[in-house]
Amino acid sequence: MPLSRAEIITSSGERLINRLCKHWAHKLEVEHGEQEAKITFANGTCLMHAEPDRLIVSLETLEENHLDQLEGVVESHLVRMANDEPLEIVWEN
């Protein structure tokens, strides 16, 4: 299974998880606690874990071509939810 991972330096990991989960809960299967979340998309899964100084995001898909698409969706939503906080997101796969 294709995998991708990003460690994003931020002190707002918990807030980002909460905002994303509330946003996506209307149309996707979402499981989340204060520091962790799992979002199930039609073409893959996103796991997020907040640490005091970073947000760790892991993506898993069944097909390689879905990985780039899912990275783009998750990244654009993270940037939008972060408001004015600049996020540097580098995917490793």
Rank of each mutant, 00 (worst) to 15 (best):
P2S: 09
L3H: 12
R5I: 11
A6P: 02
A6V: 09
A6S: 15
I8D: 01
I8R: 03
T10L: 15
S11T: 15
S12F: 10
G13Y: 04
E14F: 07
R15W: 01
R15C: 00
R15I: 10
L16K: 03
N18I: 07
N18W: 12
N18L: 14
L20W: 09
L20K: 05
C21L: 13
K22P: 04
K22H: 12
H23C: 04
H23A: 06
A25F: 13
A25H: 15
A25E: 15
K27I: 04
K27S: 08
V30Y: 07
V30D: 02
E31M: 13
H32I: 04
G33P: 01
Q35I: 02
E36G: 00
A37G: 00
A37V: 03
A37K: 01
K38E: 15
K38A: 05
I39H: 06
T40Q: 10
A42R: 07
A42E: 14
G44Y: 14
T45Q: 11
T45S: 09
C46Q: 09
L47K: 08
L47S: 06
L47P: 00
L47C: 09
L47N: 07
A50F: 09
E51F: 15
E51R: 07
P52I: 13
P52R: 07
D53L: 14
D53S: 07
R54I: 03
L55I: 05
S58V: 10
E60R: 10
L62M: 10
E63D: 13
E64W: 07
H66T: 06
Q69S: 11
Q69W: 08
Q69M: 14
L70K: 01
L70Y: 05
E71V: 06
E71H: 06
G72E: 10
G72D: 08
H77Q: 15
L78F: 10
L78A: 05
L78Q: 02
V79C: 06
V79D: 02
V79E: 05
V79Y: 02
M81E: 06
M81P: 01
M81H: 04
N83I: 14
D84P: 01
E85N: 03
L87A: 01
L87D: 01
L87V: 01
E88N: 04
I89Y: 07
N93T: 07
N93D: 12
N93S: 14
N93G: 15
